[in-house]
Amino acid sequence: MSIFVLKPGLLTTVQDLGRYGWQRHGVIVSGAMDPFALRLANLLVGNDEGEAALEMTWIGPELKFETDSLIAVTGGNLNPSVNGQPVPIWRPVLVKSGSVLRFTAAINGCRGYLAAAGGFRIASVLGSKSTYLRAGIGGFEGRALRETDRLPLGTPAPAVQSQIRQLQTFPDNSPFASVNWRVSEHSLSFYREKKTIRVMRGGEFLHFNEASRSRFFHEEFRVTPQSDRMGYRLSDVTLELQKPLEMISEAVTAGTIQVPPDGNPIVLTADRQTTGGYPKIAQIISADLPILAQIKPGEKLRFREVSLEEAQELYRSREQELHILRQGLRLNWQQGLRQA
């Protein structure tokens, strides 16, 4: 009941939906950069949607399955194949014991998620299995995966196990078996809005000079290579305050766009600090954080302003969409995973 790591990829970590409730002790939230993709990967294999999964960054790993495993790969397309045969993403796939799942560099998006039925048998730290690299806590030994790691898998729920048995026939000696349905394109269409990220004004928006405020919404920023799970550093447009601003450290959150004195904005992401002292020009809305997570260094993006009401409405309709998907998947589970 395990997955053996042949090659770790660029940065592959165990993540769930994050370590909430401890920020007042300075504990960083961490968790999936693209929580939507992680939740769907779990739902596709019959897991609780907040179960831990692998987050694979840009260049994916090579993994050998030591047991028949029901998995789902979602998020950016890191071009997965099993024993050389391409496997579909956004779909449950039963991988035969002894097979090798190989990813390449992302052909679309930046971060892929791999969930396995039963989840990973890894201890929680402060209520979460997410890896926080800098403190070396959570996930697999508090670090990114390395060659020869062996990831223990949990036991799938009985209902899931009986469905796995239906798929276990592996037609034509194929190294994997899939089903004849997947997450609809319509549910994923928001990822195509890639270039434009919606934001609300930040607390210090009006402290920036007029030219900077205008540039922020009208020009394109580039994601620099100095971007990681802590934050995206942007370049190509610099932003200036009207006059120097003495800031006292206060809380920040996922999607906070802060501007240090050099004028190049930083978007705070999953492994952000709990507090910060730079002026905040804007705040990415929750519904668009998955889109940001799929933008690679070197790519460009622009920002568009929405109101708090719009931001919350967009989030609620995304959750509604997810709710419909959840119900559809439950129905598929009840009827049995029909084979493709």
Binding site: R24, I248, E250, A251, Q312
Partner: peptide, 22 residues
Amino acid sequence: MIEYIPAFASIAVFYDMLQTSF
């Protein structure tokens, strides 16, 4: 409410927007 972060002169309160409103 999900959690809160006290700082020098402020407190941030995080909430679930499916359960409550601003």
